[in-house]
Each structure stands twice: as C-alpha cells, then as structure tokens.
Amino acid sequence: MRPPVIVLRTDGTNCDVETAFAFELAGGAPRLVHVNRLRSGKEKLNRYKILAIPGGFSYGDDVHSGKILAVELISFLREEISGFIAGGGLVLGICNGFQVLIRTGLLPFGELGRIRTTLMVNDSARFECRWVRLRVEQSACVFTRGRAGEVVEFQVAHGEGRFFTENATLEEIEARRLVAFRYVGPDDRPAQDYPENPNGSLNAVAGLTDPSGRIMGLMPHPERNILAHHHPNWRRLRDPLSVGTAGRFIFENAVAAAKEA
C-alpha cells in the first residue's frame, strides 16, 4: 500500500507539485492540501502518514521566512500536529518548510511553540540559487537512514538560510547528533566559507532532525535532484543516474519508514 502523504500548501507555496512528485516516485500517495482545509476540519492530519511542508514563500515570507505559517500552525493545529507526531507520523520540511519547522520549534528539539534556533538572512544578504555539496551526518534521522557519510549535491535557492543559535544550544544539538546535513567543500569536510556554505550557517548546518529522527528539515532541495536530467552537469557525469537522482533516498526512506509505522 502506498502511504498517504499530505503536501501542505498555502498562499505562496511553490515547490508543492515537485515535492508531491518526489513522493509519488518513491512509492507514496501524495495529496496537495491547503492549510485552510485543515483549519476548517475538512481534512485531518491523522489520515496521513507523512506531512511534507514544501518550499516557497508562504505568505510572502513576511516578517520572517515561514513565520506567518508557523504562527498559524501553532495557533490552530497544535493538538492535531502533536497527535500526528505522537502517532508515529513523519514530518519533512524543505527550504521554506524547514523555516516553518524551525519557527514552530518542532526542529531541532521537537518542542512545539518553543523557538531556540533560527534561520537568518544569508551572510551575502541576498537570495541565491546554486548547487551545493552536502554530507549526510550520523544521526537518528529516518529520512537519511543508511546514508551517513555520503556526499550528495542539491540545489539551494533561498535568501534566509543562515542557521544560527546560541553556543550552548549549538553544543546541545551537536551532542545529541541532531544535524542531518552539513555543507561541505571539495574535500568533503564541513565548509564555513562562501559559496560552499552558501549562507554562513553555523557549523555548516544545512539540515536538522529532531531527537526521534522522524522530523527533518533542510534548506537545500532534494526534490530537485530526482530525475536523470536534474543535475546541472548530468550530460558530463560518468554515472548520471547515481549522482543525478541523489535526492530520491530521502523520499524513499520516508515512504519505507511510513510503511513500517
């Protein structure tokens, strides 16, 4: 059976269709659902196994990126989301979706309503779209299961992606192994410098998991690297299928984990 995936959309969401397609390809049964339908009760989260919050500019990224949607989710869907997570539901946030998860407090500590980390304006002070190298980190994250140590290439496209928090919190994140992805340089080591680290994120953090491993968010776009012609240099790659579709495992792992749950 294909596990049902809710791809949440709202005003300004714009990576919903390709995110749904990525889940479709991975064996899920995605459905695009406007947040208004959750608010009105016409749709229930508990009908689904995976909640995906895709990229875009939800509500124009007004005030802070992802903030207005985060406030909406905390204000109206707090119990529903808590219940969904307690029931084994998986949550994936990509780019703007990651910003939403950070601003709800769900990442990195799974504390709905308590915000201890943030994503700031890029060090370059501008939106940028480029391909970056990422290392999959050792963590409890089910989305990256079996991939620790691998280096993948995804595209980033954002203006507010600089991960920031206080030192003590950063240490806690590292100690609890909540980093799912890091930006790396050509030597596969974490990069602090532009453009390998495209936004100036502390400890080169590109993606985070919660302690349970069932909530993950990342700034880069894995759904933009799932087809043979997605990688910018697929024509010159010796093995385009392995490099050029490297984003698939995230969705495949999610679907596999949803089937187990």
């Binding site: 990576c15 390709e18 240099n233």
Partner: peptide, 17 residues
Amino acid sequence: RVYDHGVQGTNALPPYG
C-alpha cells in the same frame, strides 16, 4: 544566481553549468 531557476523541478539545462 539571484533568480530561482530550479523551482517546479523542471530544469534540464541550467543557464550556467
């Protein structure tokens, strides 16, 4: 670089490669 050229997941030849 300040334009998102990958959104919609449709790009098969980027402006710069």
